[in-house]
């Protein structure tokens, strides 16, 4: 009786590590399937359309609004110190270093990651994956690898678009509505945003997030319990786990890149 909670804890621990191991084995198998896609780029392009292009709208709209909010908040704070000319720098740094990669990854998990999980999970539940295996087609190569690669490649591009649109959002509010000098907005940004320290680090973040988000989405789909309930749980797990992983990794990466 007293040992029950302890047993449960142990069981939960074992199942956690077992899943982690399965996830890693799965990742190796997925990556092994990637080189073969060089000969069949059509498979990846099709997935990049559904994973990347169809996510564009939410990225554009969110990027614009996030940029506008940054413009407004930044202006309020900076004007207290008479430094509203630096608005461009503040908006651009916030976007390329943090908000671009992080918010894009969160939106990606909600829009594309969940769809990937549900699609693969339903393919499993309706025996489509099993059917492929019996047709001597490896679903890891045919279904999982192209989706993983498409997610991995799309994320940095989406994050870049998010940041670019955000900079314009800040511009509309700061320069257009609040009267910050246009030249100062751009020139200060150009002078203070460093290609290596800021842009590259932001891109590295979005590459890491893309890798993790795509991995979680395809793994949860493939590892689904093949029932309606299983698919719904897996979809939820994709969004939750991706969000946690991205935010946790963001702290680690930020500490490594900017922690000195």
């Amino acid at each position: 009786m007293i040992l029950d909670p302890l047993q449960q804890l142990g069981r939960a621990g074992i199942s956690f590590f077992e899943r982690l191991g399965r996830g890693n084995m799965f990742l190796l198998q997925t990556i092994a399937g990637v080189p073969a896609l060089l000969w069949r780029p059509g498979l990846v392009i099709k997935q990049m359309y559904s994973v990347g292009v169809l996510t564009l709208l939410i990225i554009l709209v969110s990027g614009l609004f996030v940029g506008m909010v940054l413009g407004l908040q930044g202006y309020n704070t900076l004007s207290d110190f008479g430094a509203e000319e630096s608005l461009g720098v503040a908006v651009a740094l916030a976007l390329v270093r943090e908000l671009g990669p992080v918010v894009t990854a969160l939106l990606f998990a909600g829009r594309a990651g969940s769809a990937l999980t549900a699609e693969i999970g339903l393919m499993k539940a309706t025996e489509q994956l099993s059917g492929m295996e019996m047709m001597a087609v490896d679903p890891m190569r045919r279904v999982v690898a192209p989706r993983f690669l498409a997610g991995f490649l799309s994320m940095p591009l989406l994050a870049a678009i998010f940041s670019a649109v955000g900079v314009y959002g800040g511009f509309f509010v700061g320069v257009g509505l609040l009267g910050v000098d246009e030249g100062a907005y751009w020139s200060q940004m150009q002078a203070s945003v460093d290609l290596h320290d800021d842009i590259y680090n932001g891109v590295i973040k979005s590459i890491v997030f893309g890798f993790v988000a795509a991995w979680i989405a395809v793994f949860e789909g493939y590892d689904t319990v093949p029932t309606s309930e299983g698919v719904s749980r897996a979809t939820t797990r994709t969004v939750v786990h991706t969000a946690l992983a991205v935010l946790g990794l963001d702290f680690v990466l930020t500490a490594l890149m900017f922690g000195d």
Binding site: G131, M134, A136
Partner: peptide, 19 residues
């Protein structure tokens, strides 16, 4: 195994068509 499977066909109960 995959080579052998190319010489086997299987019809699943649900059909398992790619939707």
């Amino acid at each position: 195994l995959y080579k052998l499977r190319q010489r086997m066909g299987m019809m699943f109960q649900s059909g398992a068509l790619l939707t």
